[in-house]
Structure formats: structure tokens, C-alpha cells
Design a protein around this nucleic acid. Structure first.
Lengths: 340, 340
DNA sequence: GACCTTAGTGTAAGCGCTTACATTCGATTC
DNA sequence: GAATCGAATGTAAGCGCTTACACTAAGGTC
């Protein structure tokens, strides 16, 4: 039965140690400014009382929180997990704490989360993608809160970005697909509205088609939220056509895995009856059979670089330059080479 | 070029609206106590200034944050994602915000995160599993912060739990495996130290062995962190034995998927050469080929129930009763029935 | 020996909010 | 018409912390 004494405050510690509150605060925040003997006394009082500083009070007085906020579209699939994990590790190593929320791909929810993180005193914010209402950026700017957009690379943007060129990457993959002799190409894209990464990937595929004399407008296309089940349904609908595609390119690996299952459920063999490609190179892509041809994104590196860049901005070491990462093609069994 | 005026405060709003700060505060927190006309004036001032309440100040004055903290072992694989998502949705519906951190399965890190969440004013805490240093619980108790342990069901514990009986569930699966004629059973377990769920699953398997006249001590066992790669390595090591098991039961689906890949890489066919089982029934289990026999855990329901129970505790409607959820066996292709 | 440093510590003014209590004022009651 | 009441609003005291500034004492300097 633990007694329920009230939570100890700085004052209690000061009284117990026989010093002023200022000294206690200094012991905690810049110990080198306090002489050893005093510090020991204070620390043992801290220990004895089980004191933990009140974060809100500290934030209010110091106007710093050493907290970074991140808002990702979803935690449910693995797209962001690895990058975020690396982001978090790097922050931790630099003495910052990460606060995460998920927006469920809904701009209004994201808005709310941004305000909530700001209200909580986040020193900086990591957002995914860059396409959002300008008022969001002006709100953050008026509060002098650094923002970094990740998972995209847009050097010409006002805001710094850390990521890769989604459009170019998809274009490269599509070029490979075309080089393999595919002409009837279908796509299962993520929802492009409010999602610049999805839109860029779609655009990249169209670029490749146009560059090879194929009609981008004629391409069978289904837009659907990033969920496995949706990939399965979409594939079946594409393959039900009179002139089904020889390859279905998916907006990400989650859709691709779904497409794979869709094909299997339909009795189609991949890649003999239809080829499938993904994007992101999440773990899933190498686990399914056949393994999925995809675009490898250096997620961990992106997370780490994003953390570094954001901290630099927060600590005023830079105003934020964009960082580009290179994606690479991962050609695996789910894509058939028709030229051989 | 947005001007960088300083962040508006309650005072600014009050001045703009020509009322006192108390009235503004009431408009925000209990609007029904303010007459319509005043409220409108205040709200338009809020709008006009782009005012957002300062969370720290609010928490300090009100001693309530409407924030719940959760600490999960990892975000990197999907084990907790679905349950947490449901937890978050339910909290949101009830007006609470969720703060998540991950402990990387390290008790010291978890400790630190707990203190950090408490310092941030969390009204209640969700933890995974129940096996931790008693000082953690007494610390929380001295601060009167409700805690709920999830992913386990331990009715006899001091603390409320919401989850299922890991031991019994694994025992049931093992019984099925034995009923299918398997006698040479190997296990790839998660690290049991500091992880009561992993330990319970291992114990459940041993229970079943003993109950069927098999020697629990003789069972080949590898303990390894929950990662796909580790599952692959462990399986290969188990199968390299002179008398390899006919079935490898894994501590969770992540290990099982790894084991599956390990078998494939070794040229073994599942389930003809070796059967594999998992635990959790995450999406992965149904995506791989063959689909994995596993224990289905109602993750979403668990998340929802946990949120309800925790809020009830925070709002003093209950002191927290444990809730048991039922797991169910999912027999799929990765387990061979040797009796037919 | 008077004066200046400087290191170590204390004093006290906020930071932005909520809320107990005080005040005001129009409506109701007799 | 005076007394009473209650609804709407205002006043002001903290909540727990950081930090600018003030103070003290011990060395150094000339």
C-alpha cells in the first residue's frame, strides 16, 4: 500500500536539499554551473523524493521542449514504419523526443494533429509529402516552427524536403517494364487526391508511356486506398477486361501484394499470366511468392537524414536545405521479361 | 511573407473580444456557461487571431490533459499496429489524444518513456504485458495514474488487464498440432526475458507436451528477437539436426514468416517437409504461401476494450476490472495433418 | 589595503491558463 | 418598491518551472 503523497515539485526538492529552486533547476539543466558538493545534495534529494520535472511547466518557462512531432498517414501498414523508426532513433540520440500521430490520409485530421502538436510545444514538425493547404504552412511560419516534408524531394519548394523523386523513380521502373517487352500496362494507384507521392508515381508512369510512344490516356487505371484487399479487388477488375494487361504496376507494395493475392485467387499465375510491380520495397515485397519487383527506397537513411535536417533547423544551424536520396530498382520474380 | 507576430494568448483574445480571460476560457471549455452573444464575439476573436490554447499551461492549471500514453515494444512490425489503431480510434471518439512511444523491448527504455509520458501529464497509461519492476507500478500509484496492461489477461493481478490467455491459447494450438500426429515438435520463441507473453506461449506449449506424455525438456528450442530474418536463421538451425522436427511452432507470425522463408531457402517444402505455425494472426499470415496456421487474436476488439476500460479508470467510473478476450485457432495450409 | 573579478547561489518575475470567489444587474416575488 | 435570487461575467490566485539580475565571498591585482 503506497501512500499517496502529492507529487513532488521543484520546491520540495529545493527545501529538502536546503537550496533555492534556481539551484535545483540548474542542477538539472546545466549541472556544470553548480559546484559538485551542492549538486550531490540536490541529486540525492531528487532521488529520495522521486521527483520528475513537470513537462508543461518547463515548456512554458523555457519555451523549448526538445520534442519533435511527426504526422504520418497511417501506422497500419509498414510503409512508414522503418523510416519513422530510424527518425526516432536519431532524434533520441540527439536528446529529442518524438511524438507521432496518424492522419488516416485525411487533411482535416492532419490539420488538427498539427495544431495539437504545436499546442504541445513541438519544436519542429515532420510531415509526409508536401501537398497541403498553404494556410498550414503560414500557420507554422507565424509560430516560427520549422517543418520538414519527407518521402518527397522537391528542391524548388519553399519548404525543405528530404526524400526521393517519386515521379522519376516510377518512370525508371516503367521504362524497365517496357524494355522487358510489356505494352499492355495497367496501373493500380493509391488515391492521388491530397497525396502528392501517389500523384507523382502515376505521372512518372505516364511519362514513360509517352516517351515510348504509348498513349498514357489509354492506360487502364484504378485508384484505391493503400490496402491489401483493395489491391486484390482492383487486380481482378483489371484482369476481367477483354484485353487484359500483361503487367499491372502498383502504387506501392501493399497494393502489389494485394494484387498478387487477387491474381492467385483468380487462378492466374504471376508472372506467367500477369506481371506485377510495387513500390517502396517494404519487407513484404520479399516475403511473398513470387517476390515483387519494386523500387527500393532507403527508408532508414531517409529517416536519419530527416532527423538531422530538422534538428539543424530547430537549432538554427540551417534554414533547411533539401536532401535527395536515390531510389533503386529491385527486379524480382513478379516481373516477366517477355523478350526472352 | 508572413509577418512573425508573437503567438496569440488567451489575453489577446480577451482583449480583442472585450471580455475577461475567464470568459474566453469558459467559451472554450464549457460554452454553455456563456451567453450566445458573448460567445460569438469571443469565437470570432479566436478565429481572427488564429489562437490555439497552450497545452502546457492548460495542463498545469487544470491538472487534466485528456491525453493517454501508450508504450509498445516496437512499431516496426505489425504485431501491435492494428490493436493500437483501434485503441486510438476509440480514444479519439471519446475526446482523448493518444501519445505513443516504443520501448524496443528494453525495460530501461520503457521506464524512461513512462516517466516522460507522466511528465507530459498523461491521464492514464497503456502498457503491453504485465511483467515489470514493481517500482514502476508504485511510481504510477503514488502519482495516481491509472495503468492498464494489455495483450495479456491476468485476473489475479493487482492491475487491470485487457487481453487473452497467451498460455492457454498456445496450449490449445499445440494440442491441435499433436492431434494432427506431430510428435517431433520444435519451437522458435521470442525472447522470454522481460516478455511475459513470450514466456507464457512457451509455457503453454510445454503444458501441451507434458499433457500428452511428451518430454517438454527434450523439445528443441531457439529464443530470438521477433524479426523475420531471425525466424529464417532459427528454422535452418533446427532443421539441420539429425532428427529434425516435423513441425516448428513459432512464438509469433513474424518468426513464422521468417521460418517459412528459411525453409524455402533451404529447399524444404512447407508443409510437406516441415509444418510451421505462428501466433497473432497478423495480415502477413494470410498473405504468404502457404498461409500460416496461427492463433487469431481479436486485436481491434482488444484495442477498443482497452480504451474503454482505461477511460473509465481515468474518469473514476471504475477502479479497473480485467477483461478477457477469446483467441481462436486458425488452421491453414502451413500445418500438415499427419493422420490422413 | 582598496578595488575588481568571478564563481556560486538566491530572489523574484513571469510563462498562459483555469477556477474559486466576488461582483453586477435584471427579473421575480411579496 | 424593497428584497431576493440567479445568471453572466470579472478578479486574481495560483499551477511548476526557468532565468535575468542581484548578491556574496574569495581570490587576484596593483
Amino acid at each position: 500500500m503506497t501512500e499517496l503523497r502529492s507529487v513532488p515539485t521543484l520546491d520540495d526538492v529545493a527545501r529538502t536539499a536546503g537550496v533555492s529552486t534556481a539551484t535545483v533547476s540548474r542542477c538539472l539543466n546545466s549541472p556544470e554551473r553548480v559546484v559538485e558538493q551542492t549538486r550531490k545534495r540536490v541529486m540525492s534529494a531528487v532521488e529520495q523524493l522521486g521527483y520528475t520535472p513537470n513537462f508543461g511547466a518547463r515548456a512554458m518557462a523555457a519555451k523549448r521542449t526538445f520534442t519533435i512531432g511527426a504526422i504520418i498517414p497511417t501506422m497500419e501498414n509498414a510503409i512508414f514504419a522503418r523510416g519513422l523508426q530510424a527518425f526516432q532513433e536519431e532524434l533520441h540520440a540527439r536528446g529529442y523526443t518524438l511524438l507521432v500521430s496518424s492522419s488516416l490520409y485525411q487533411p482535416e485530421v492532419e490539420d488538427e494533429q498539427i495544431r495539437s502538436l504545436v499546442a504541445r510545444g513541438a519544436d519542429g514538425l515532420l510531415l509526409i509529402g508536401h501537398d497541403r493547404d498553404p494556410s498550414v504552412y503560414s500557420y507554422l511560419q507565424s509560430r516560427a516552427i520549422p517543418v520538414l516534408s519527407a518521402w518527397v524531394y522537391l528542391p524548388e519548394s519553399d519548404q525543405p524536403t528530404v526524400g526521393f523523386d517519386n515521379r522519376q523513380s516510377m518512370r525508371a521502373l516503367a521504362q524497365k517494364v517496357i524494355d522487358f517487352g510489356h505494352r499492355r500496362i495497367g496501373m493500380i494507384s493509391g488515391v492521388t487526391k491530397g497525396n502528392d507521392r501517389a500523384a507523382a508515381r502515376l505521372a512518372g508512369l505516364r511519362d514513360a508511356l509517352a516517351a515510348n510512344g504509348l498513349d498514357p490516356e489509354a492506360m487502364p487505371l484504378i485508384e484505391t486506398p493503400y490496402e491489401i484487399e483493395n489491391g486484390a479487388v482492383a487486380l481482378q477488375s483489371l484482369m476481367a477486361s477483354d484485353d487484359p494487361p500483361s503487367v499491372v504496376m502498383c502504387g506501392n507494395d501493399v497494393l502489389a501484394v494485394g494484387a498478387l493475392r487477387g491474381a492467385r485467387d483468380m487462378g492466374l499465375s504471376v508472372p506467367d499470366d500477369v506481371s506485377i510491380t510495387g513500390f517502396d520495397d517494404i519487407e513484404l515485397a520479399r516475403i511473398v511468392t513470387p517476390q515483387i519487383t519494386t523500387v527500393h527506397v532507403p527508408h532508414r537513411e531517409m529517416g536519419r537524414k530527416a532527423a538531422q535536417a530538422l534538428i539543424d533547423m530547430v537549432e538554427k544551424r540551417s534554414t533547411g536545405a533539401s536532401v535527395e536520396l536515390k531510389s533503386t530498382l529491385q527486379i524480382r520474380d513478379s516481373l516477366r521479361d517477355l523478350t526472352r
